[in-house]
Amino acid sequence: MNKYEKNVSSFRLFFNQLSRKKLASLSIIILMLVYLTGIFAPLLAPYDYTETNLLKTQAGPDFENWLGTDRLGRDILSRVIWGIQTTVIVTITGLLTGSLFLGLFLGLLAGYYRKLFDFIVMRSGELVSSFPDILLIILLAATLRPRITQFIYNIEEKFNFSGIISSGVVDYIVIGVALLPLSWFGTMRLIRAQVFQIREVDYVLSAKTSGASTMRIIFKHVLPNVISPLIVTSTFGLGAVALSEVMLSFFGLGVQPPRPSLGAMIADVTGRGGASVSVLTNHPEQLLAPIIVIWIMIFCWNIIGDGLTDILNPRRN
C-alpha cells in the first residue's frame, strides 16, 4: 500500500473514529462550551470582576447573584466566568508557545538533523526534566516576575505608551514562561521519534533524491504525519498547564488580584495558610464554584486524551 495515501486520509479517519467515541465527543463539546464562556466573558458575566458590594458580603445564592458573593461582595458567578477566561488565555498561550512552537519545531529539527542539534535539544530536555517540576515552576514564577515587569516597563518607557502592565498581561507572560519547561519536552520527544521513522520512508527518500529542499521535506512530507500524535500530547499537556496556572495563582505567584483566577478564588476561601473553617462550613459554594469548573475541565481533557490515545494506538485497531 502506498503510505502517503494512507496518511493523508488518516486525518479524516481519525476524526471519524473520534466522533464514534461518545464520551470523548461529549467532553469536547463541554470543553468548547467552557472555552466559549471564557472567550465571551465580557458579554456573559453579569458583573465586572472588580465590582464590590460591601452591603452584601458573603451572601448565599439568590436571583441577583446566582452563586452568591464573596467576602468583598463580589459576584462569584462573574468571577468564575472571568477566571475561566484566565484559564483559556493561559492554556492557549501554553499550547502555542510550549507544545506547538517549541515542541513541534524542535522535534522536527532534532529528528531531521540529528547529530549535534539533536544532542543539544535532548540534553537540555533531560536537564529540564531532572527538576522537580512544581518547585521549578514556583521558583521561575517567583524570580522572573520582577525582571519581566521591568522589561515591559522599559519598553513602555522607550516607546512612550502605557497600559501593558496595568492590563495584567505581565501575569500571563510570567505564567507562560514559568510553564514553558513543563510543556515542550514531551511533545518534542514524541515528534522527534515520529520524524526518525518517517525520514527513512520511501517517499521522503525519493523527495530527497528528486532535489526537494530540506524545509520542503520537513513541512510538506514530515509535518502532516506528525499532526495526530501532536494533538494527543497537546491535549494531555493542556490539562497540566491549566492546573499549574491554578496552582500558581493559588500560591499568589500567578495572576495577581484583582484579576480573577480560579486558583486565586480557591486561595481566597481556603486562606492559603490552611482551610478557613468558618467559610467552609457556612459558604461551601464559594469553594465549590471554582473547583467544579476546574474538575470538569481536567476530567474532559483526560477523557479526550484517553480517547485519542485509543484511536491512535495501532495495537488497538
Binding site: 481556603t270 467552609l280 474538575w295 481536567i298 476530567f299 483526560n302 477523557i303 484517553d306
Partner: peptide
C-alpha cells in the same frame, strides 16, 4: 477507567477542603 479518571481529575484543592469539611 472512567471512575478513576473522575478521581484523578479531582484537584487536590477540591479533595483537601472537602475531606476537612
Amino acid at each position: 477507567v472512567i471512575s478513576t479518571l473522575f478521581f484523578y481529575a479531582m484537584p487536590v484543592f477540591f479533595t483537601a477542603p472537602l475531606m476537612i469539611l
